[in-house]
């Protein structure tokens, strides 16, 4: 038996396909699958959650545990805002909710609608509104979310995202990507809902004050100060561009013949 030294041809045990090609195929393919899955799930959750009647939702969430939220429980500004919301809600008699306003600390101007009729208002928003009509439009907007039950659908989306993130969380890189993309998706999904909520809000303002003058002044100020000021960033990140929404509201008022001239009501004593 003779030994003849020979080496095998190089590269037999290594696939010749370029790793970047595999990476592209995998990322694009899986991205598409996850996006489809996300849209499908959100759609399903929307349907299921909307089957829950608003009355049942109001009952379940009426005892919402505020301890997990940072709210200013005995703030003197709560009562006047609550009173304004109740006056607006009176123009929506079939509402199944009992609305509850809570003030949150923070400089950013923002307001949120949460399941069960809970409306969160930041101190920053109360600092920045100048008339009752401005505040009424923002509050009416939140009531609009309840009317269209956007808050419950947002809850559905957040649930899907959280579960989705937990499922794929075996790799850190994937989680941060999924989180980010998911957040962006939730936001762009919400834009049409925001517009509808704006319209309902303006309708309530018209019903309450008999005119819509000065209602969107707050948005105009936000728009003027939007450049370079971070305070409004939070509100803008979840709400449509102010220019667009002002134009939309103006068009709605014109179409319905709501008067644009009138004297805005000054803020209640506790809010000034």
């Amino acid at each position: 038996m003779r030994f003849t030294p020979r080496l095998p041809r190089d590269g037999i045990n290594v696939s010749q396909e370029h790793p970047l090609k595999e990476a592209t195929v995998l990322i694009v393919g899986l991205g598409a699958v996850f996006a489809l899955l996300f849209i499908l799930l959100v759609w399903l959750v929307d349907i299921v959650l909307l089957l829950v009647p608003a009355e049942a939702e109001a009952r379940v969430f009426s005892s919402w545990d505020l301890s997990s939220l940072e709210v200013l429980s005995d703030d003197s500004r709560q009562a006047p805002v609550q009173e304004l919301v109740e006056r607006l809600a009176a123009h929506w008699p079939e509402s199944p909710y009992e609305f509850r306003v809570e003030i949150m600390p923070g400089d950013e101007a923002n307001a949120m609608a949460l399941p069960g009729g809970l409306i969160l208002v930041t101190e920053g928003l109360l600092d920045q509104v100048e008339t009752e009509n401005e505040l009424a439009l923002v509050m009416g907007h939140e009531l609009g979310h309840f009317k269209h039950r956007d808050h419950i659908r947002r809850l559905g989306r957040v649930t899907v995202l959280t579960i989705g993130a937990a499922v794929v969380s075996s790799s850190a890189a994937r989680v941060s990507l999924a989180d980010t993309v998911g957040n962006l998706a939730t936001r762009s999904f919400g834009r049409d809902d925001e517009r509808e909520a704006d319209r309902f809000g303006l309708e309530l303002v018209q019903a309450e004050f008999g005119h819509v003058a000065g209602a969107w002044k707050f948005f105009e100020r936000l728009d003027a100060s939007a450049l370079g000021i971070d305070r409004v960033a939070a509100y803008l990140s979840t709400h449509p561009g102010n220019r667009d929404r002002i134009d939309d509201l103006r068009a709605l008022a014109a179409a319905r013949g709501w008067p644009l001239d009138g004297e805005p009501v000054s803020l209640a004593l506790g809010l000034r």
């Binding site: 290594v14 790793p19 595999e22 995998l26 990322i27 899986l30 890189a173």
Partner: peptide
């Protein structure tokens, strides 16, 4: 890190995990 990322994605789909081949070789 890059190949581990690709391998992790591949594990979701199944099939030949090419990124490990050069390493093991």
């Amino acid at each position: 890190y890059f190949k581990r990322f690709i391998a992790a994605l591949r594990a979701l789909v199944g099939g030949r995990v090419k990124s490990y081949e050069p390493l093991l070789d």
